[in-house]
Amino acid sequence: MSQRVFITAGAGGIGKVIAETYVAQGAQVFVCDQDHTAIDNLTEEINGTCVDVTDEAALDAWLQDGIARFGGCDVLINNAGIAGQADPVEALDLAQWRTCLAVNLDAQMITCRAIAPVMKRQKSGVIINLSSTSGLFGAPFRAPYAAAKWAVIGFTKTIATELGPYGIRCNAICPGAVSGDRMDRVLAAEAQARGVAPQDVYQEYASGSSLRRFAEPSEIAQLCLYLSSDAAKFISGQAIAVDGNTETYHSV
């Protein structure tokens, strides 16, 4: 039986690459995304619905639709995320803070809350929550994002202990800087906050990796595929970085 894979923010960027990677392996893929155009442009192999993940009722409805349509869920990938406000702590806006946490953290709770009973009945399942290296290290001028991504790891480790006895594995993936439009926007926002050029910020990010480059979306997708395979059937409760070794920093 092919895997039934649910992916939030799966119609563009990293999420779309993840979706296409699973489709190539014969999986049944069900995605949501807030971008109407991206949903309309999905290939027929990917089932998609337009959903704002901060809308609890809409997100729940999407999940219940998928569960009914496919008869269950084997893999849940919480990919939805936003960069959040990029400013010093004294300039943070509470409304923007709450929005950042709503997308990056609250949505993961909502999806896991709905999927856990299904996977418990199946006595199997894989949950993959997207965190970030900002959930492993401090991130200057990125307090809302870093706070949310640290929380994702704590949430993931906690539900791994709760759901493990039912044969459900839960892991967090912590990408470093990933090439694409979203990262371009992050660089531009941070550059503006610091009063420097975006290229200067890019060089700092890249030099912070031992491999001196950004990750590719396909590298995140391949780790998802591995973690949801039988090859990873004893891996749970982990926060796994895909960051070219960001523990080694280099001056620009």
Rank of each mutant, 00 (worst) to 15 (best):
Met1Cys: 09
Met1Trp: 03
Gln3Ile: 02
Gln3Leu: 15
Phe6His: 04
Ile7Gly: 10
Gly10Leu: 09
Ala11Phe: 10
Ala11Glu: 04
Ala11Lys: 03
Gly12Lys: 14
Lys16Pro: 09
Val17Thr: 09
Val17Phe: 04
Val23Phe: 00
Val23Asn: 02
Ala24Cys: 04
Gly26Tyr: 00
Gly26Ala: 00
Gly26Lys: 00
Val31Arg: 02
Asp33Phe: 13
Asp40Ala: 11
Asn41Cys: 07
Thr43Ser: 15
Glu44Gln: 13
Glu44His: 11
Glu44Asp: 15
Asn47Leu: 12
Gly48Lys: 05
Asp52Tyr: 02
Trp62Gln: 03
Trp62Tyr: 14
Leu63Glu: 05
Phe70Gln: 14
Gly72Val: 07
Leu76Ala: 07
Leu76Thr: 04
Ala80Ser: 13
Gly81His: 13
Ala83Ile: 15
Gly84Ile: 05
Gln85Pro: 07
Gln85Asn: 09
Gln85Ile: 08
Pro88Cys: 11
Val89Asn: 08
Val89Met: 09
Val89Lys: 00
Ala91Ser: 14
Leu92Ile: 11
Gln96Phe: 02
Thr99Val: 09
Val103Lys: 12
Asn104Pro: 03
Leu105Pro: 10
Leu105Ser: 01
Asp106Ile: 01
Ala107Thr: 10
Gln108Gly: 13
Thr111Ala: 15
Arg113Gln: 11
Lys120Asn: 01
Gln122Leu: 05
Gln122Pro: 12
Gly125Leu: 02
Ile128Leu: 06
Ile128Pro: 05
Ser131Phe: 11
Ser134Val: 02
Gly135Pro: 01
Leu136Ser: 10
Leu136Ile: 06
Phe137Lys: 03
Gly138Trp: 05
Phe141Thr: 14
Arg142Gly: 00
Arg142Phe: 03
Ala147Val: 06
Ala148Ser: 14
Ile153Asp: 11
Phe155Met: 15
Thr156Arg: 01
Ala160Trp: 04
Ala160Gln: 00
Cys170Gly: 09
Cys170Ala: 14
Asn171Met: 05
Asn171Glu: 09
Cys174Lys: 11
Gly176Ser: 07
Ala177Leu: 03
Gly180Asp: 11
Met183Gly: 00
Met183Glu: 12
Asp184Phe: 00
Leu187Arg: 10
Glu190Ala: 14
Glu190Asp: 14
Ala191Val: 08
Gln192Ile: 02
Gly195Asp: 05
Gly195Cys: 02
Val196Ile: 13
Glu204Val: 07
Tyr205Val: 15
Ala206Gln: 13
Ser207Met: 08
Ser207Glu: 03
Gly208Ser: 15
Arg213Ser: 04
Arg213His: 11
Phe214Ile: 04
Ala215Pro: 01
Glu216Asp: 09
Glu216Trp: 00
Ser218Ile: 15
Ile220Val: 15
Gln222Val: 08
Gln222Tyr: 08
Leu225Ile: 13
Leu227Asn: 01
Ser228Phe: 07
Ser228Val: 08
Asp230Glu: 15
Ala231Gln: 10
Ala232Gln: 07
Lys233Glu: 15
Gln238Val: 03
Ala241Asn: 02
Ala241Ser: 14
Val242Glu: 09
Val242Phe: 03
Asp243Arg: 05
Tyr249Leu: 14
His250Leu: 13
Ser251Asn: 12
Val252Tyr: 03
